[in-house]
Amino acid sequence: MSTPKVAVITGASQGIGAALVTAYRKLGYAVVANSRSIADSDDPMVRAVAGDIAAPAVGARVIEQGLKAFGRIDTLVNNAGLFVSKPFTDYTDEDYDLVTGVNLRGFFEISQRAIEAMLSQGGGGHVVNITTSLVDHANSKVPSALASLTKGGLNAVTKSLATEYATRGIRVNAVAPGVIRTPMHPVETHEFLAELHPVGRMGDISDIVDAIIYLEHAPFVTGEILHVDGGQSAGH
């Protein structure tokens, strides 16, 4: 019996991350699922690895556990992320450490280890970073300097890594969502959030999952920032 492909998903306990676990299992992948407090799965092909991705050594441990359980790593989806909206001068040192910890350090270590595994096993691989449409289309109604600082960095490193590893079969892409209907957004904010999009609605979790699965099956696409944002990045 051949080893199935293996996807690693961070921020996997709810929202987009939980939906991605289900989607990759339907594709026949084994899944390594990480979040700060994630319950063990009844599915033997899902390995839950709890830990704060912003903390040193956690990213390495997630990949090591995946290799121990399933023997390879084929895809990494850097889904874990934090969004703190404040006027720029109101951000604290704690805000900065929190957001950069999850959004940047959380990307850095686990991506290094995943790419090392992909290189050592041969056959290439795929890294997908979840960023935000606000990087390209800032909005005066949504102050988001720390999101732009960190997620803008992820957009840039997506292109850098895509070119660095293109000849070795590792693709690196990003999905830049608009505002998605997840538990992060209270229901009373939905009307305001819907109006931020030219199409007049919030995105659904399935919109983002479908985009990631498209990228999974697009071997000629790398270095792409795929906007799934109801037209936000085009203007309003």
Score class of each variant (00 low, 15 high):
88 F>E: 05
88 F>C: 10
89 T>K: 02
90 D>S: 15
91 Y>T: 09
91 Y>F: 14
92 T>E: 10
94 E>P: 05
95 D>L: 01
98 L>V: 10
98 L>S: 15
100 T>C: 15
102 V>R: 02
103 N>G: 06
103 N>M: 04
103 N>A: 06
103 N>E: 03
103 N>R: 10
105 R>Q: 06
106 G>D: 00
106 G>M: 04
107 F>L: 15
107 F>A: 11
110 I>F: 03
110 I>T: 00
111 S>V: 12
111 S>P: 10
112 Q>D: 09
113 R>P: 03
116 E>G: 05
116 E>H: 15
117 A>C: 08
119 L>Q: 15
120 S>T: 12
120 S>E: 15
120 S>F: 06
121 Q>L: 08
122 G>N: 07
123 G>V: 13
124 G>D: 12
125 G>I: 15
126 H>C: 10
128 V>L: 04
129 N>G: 07
129 N>W: 02
130 I>W: 00
131 T>M: 12
132 T>W: 00
132 T>A: 13
134 L>N: 04
134 L>D: 00
136 D>K: 13
136 D>Q: 14
136 D>N: 12
137 H>R: 12
137 H>T: 12
137 H>Y: 03
138 A>P: 14
139 N>A: 11
141 K>D: 15
143 P>T: 05
144 S>C: 13
144 S>E: 14
145 A>V: 11
146 L>F: 04
147 A>K: 05
147 A>I: 06
147 A>F: 01
148 S>L: 11
148 S>Q: 11
149 L>K: 07
149 L>Q: 01
152 G>T: 06
155 N>L: 07
159 K>V: 14
160 S>A: 08
161 L>K: 03
162 A>I: 02
163 T>L: 03
163 T>F: 10
166 A>Q: 11
166 A>G: 08
166 A>D: 09
167 T>V: 01
168 R>T: 12
171 R>Q: 13
173 N>Q: 09
174 A>G: 04
174 A>V: 02
177 P>R: 13
185 H>K: 05
187 V>P: 08
188 E>V: 10
188 E>L: 00
190 H>P: 13
192 F>L: 13
192 F>D: 13
193 L>F: 07
193 L>Q: 12
194 A>D: 14
194 A>P: 13
196 L>W: 04
196 L>R: 13
197 H>L: 14
199 V>P: 04
200 G>T: 09
207 D>N: 08
209 V>R: 04
210 D>H: 07
210 D>K: 11
212 I>M: 10
215 L>A: 01
215 L>H: 06
216 E>T: 14
217 H>I: 08
220 F>S: 10
221 V>G: 02
221 V>T: 14
222 T>Q: 06
223 G>C: 08
223 G>I: 09
224 E>L: 08
225 I>D: 08
